[in-house]
């Protein structure tokens, strides 16, 4: 680590939503990096800002969302400094996204082939027949029958739609694919297949991936490194194995404890999805101003310092940081 230039380097990124009730700091100063061909993961409860963090990379924000500070260095180039028009042309070409395809991420009244061809021809100057040929190759690559490419989305099952989403994401040979809850609506067996497919593609194409999930088991299974997010902040970041074995931040500990069975292998064998228990207390409203450590209202180990002073990165291991004042003093 550190010797190669990372593919993506995010520094102190701040993304705020301007709502009628006030400013919601969805992402409030996070930093992380992703190397070429690496797999990174974001985990946290819904509303913690993990999706916003990932979508901020290509400025894919709702109208009221704005990047207020920080840098997104993609191969050393700062994407936050680019105009909307410039960033638009970089979308899908450099960074593509796999949304929850089982839901409604594909246009229901447009043939699948057309939706993929549309993306290809937007970024590359090739003919429709050529683009269709590529769609056929992509279909084969993600394990779909190329004869089905002119179907409509509703004619596919959830898992097949997710494969279509992956084919779509690969259409312009991006360097980074973001998976936003890519397996959430799928059953465990299909989830495993999709995660395996993503892993296989990552290795064969040397793609970097960022996976976003509220499901710890998915992130631990599929990512080399991960960041735990809480209330717009990264509270713990590092190697997946290290965090799994030695969670340092109280929030991570509770998350890990809340999941009865984090080994995805076991879930695969039983075919049952391990449902995490919810942890005590509610995630705070993003509009609330919480001083010090954002987690202190729900933290049983909180001390006066946690209320007053925002924690800085504390080194837990070689590639393992936790943002907690007293991670080493918790039993």
């Amino acid at each position: 680590m550190g010797t190669v230039t990372p593919l993506l380097e995010v520094r102190d990124l701040k993304t705020y939503f301007h709502t009628k009730e006030g400013i919601a700091k969805a992402v409030d100063g996070i930093s992380f990096e992703v190397n070429e061909g690496a797999s990174f993961g974001f985990v946290g409860e819904s509303g913690c800002g993990k999706t916003t963090a990932a979508l901020s990379i290509i400025k894919l924000l709702p109208k009221n969302g704005r990047i207020e500070g920080g840098q997104v260095l993609f191969r050393g180039e700062d994407l936050t400094a680019k105009s909307d028009e410039e960033i638009r042309m970089r979308r899908w070409k450099d960074v593509s996204i796999v949304f929850q395809g089982a839901m409604n991420s594909l246009n229901p009244v447009m043939r699948i082939s057309k939706q993929i061809v549309e993306a290809i021809r937007l970024h590359e100057d090739i003919s429709i027949p050529e683009a269709r040929e590529r769609v056929k190759r992509l279909f084969a690559q993600v394990g779909l029958n190329p004869a089905l490419l002119d179907q409509y989305p509703h004619e596919f099952s959830g898992g097949m739609k997710q494969r279509v989403m992956i084919a779509l994401a690969l259409a312009c040979n991006p360097r980074l694919i973001i998976g936003d809850e890519p397996t959430t609506a799928l059953d465990v067996m299909v989830q495993a297949q999709i995660l395996d497919l993503l892993e296989e593609l990552r290795r064969s194409l040397n793609l970097a991936t960022i996976l976003i999930s509220h499901d710890l088991s998915v992130i631990f299974d599929a990512c080399e490194r991960l960041a735990v997010m809480y209330c717009g902040k990264i509270v713990e970041i590092g190697g997946a194995r290290e965090i799994y074995l030695r969670p340092a931040h109280p929030y991570t500990r509770k998350l890990v404890n809340a999941f009865p069975d984090l080994e995805l292998e076991k879930q695969r064998k039983t075919g049952k999805r391990a449902l995490g228990k919810s942890i005590a207390g509610d995630p705070p409203n993003p509009l609330d101003r919480i001083t010090g450590c954002k987690f202190h209202p729900r933290c049983e180990w909180a001390e006066p310092r946690c209320v007053e002073e925002e924690p800085v990165a504390m080194k837990v291991g070689a590639d393992h940081r936790a943002f907690c004042w007293k991670w080493d003093r918790i039993g």
Binding site: R91, L106, P108, L122, H123
Partner: peptide, 9 residues
């Protein structure tokens, strides 16, 4: 799917 369309560029 509107977000998808935006993401495509």
């Amino acid at each position: 799917f509107i977000v998808t369309a935006r993401a495509k560029g």
